[in-house]
């Protein structure tokens, strides 16, 4: 039983929320041509780490808003809660985000407009 601080409603009981699983899974854009296996990374493959996990949660029996939560799956410690569309701010949250295998997938690259990702690549090189 967790006590979750909804960013819009304040601290509420876990029973008001529903967990939507792993966060930061971007949907590939239509113009991309991914293989079925690459698309599966987006649709089917989910992490299940022991330790800090970035998750999507929904205040189902409240404001119905989705938000992100960095939660330790062992201790249930909630490290931070941050809005949809933004990334983690804590050091541990950032590290967990950066360390995800998903960052290197074609599915994630395909979620950003082509010119943007190319521009980023150019910058790096």
């Amino acid at each position: 039983m967790l006590l979750i601080t909804c960013p819009y409603c304040g601290p509420r009981d876990e029973s008001e929320f529903s967990c939507g699983g792993e966060a930061h899974i971007a949907r590939p854009l239509a113009e991309s041509s991914l293989t079925d296996a690459e698309f599966a990374d987006y649709l089917f493959l989910r992490d299940n780490p022991k330790g800090l996990f970035l998750e999507r949660w929904r205040h189902a029996a409240g404001c119905r808003r989705w938000f992100n939560m960095a939660r330790d799956t062992v201790t249930h410690e909630i490290v931070e809660i941050y809005p949809m569309g933004s990334g983690p701010a804590s050091k541990a949250g950032k590290a967990a985000h950066a360390a995800s295998w998903r960052r290197d997938t074609a599915a994630e690259a395909a979620s950003k407009p082509a010119h943007k990702s190319r521009a980023k690549k150019d910058k790096v090189s």
Binding site: G20, R27, R56, R58, R64, W66, M84, G85
Partner: peptide, 13 residues
């Protein structure tokens, strides 16, 4: 309804 809210908030904010 839940699915539409997910699409609206998580996929296409």
């Amino acid at each position: 309804y839940r699915h539409l809210e997910f699409v609206r908030q998580c996929l296409r904010p």
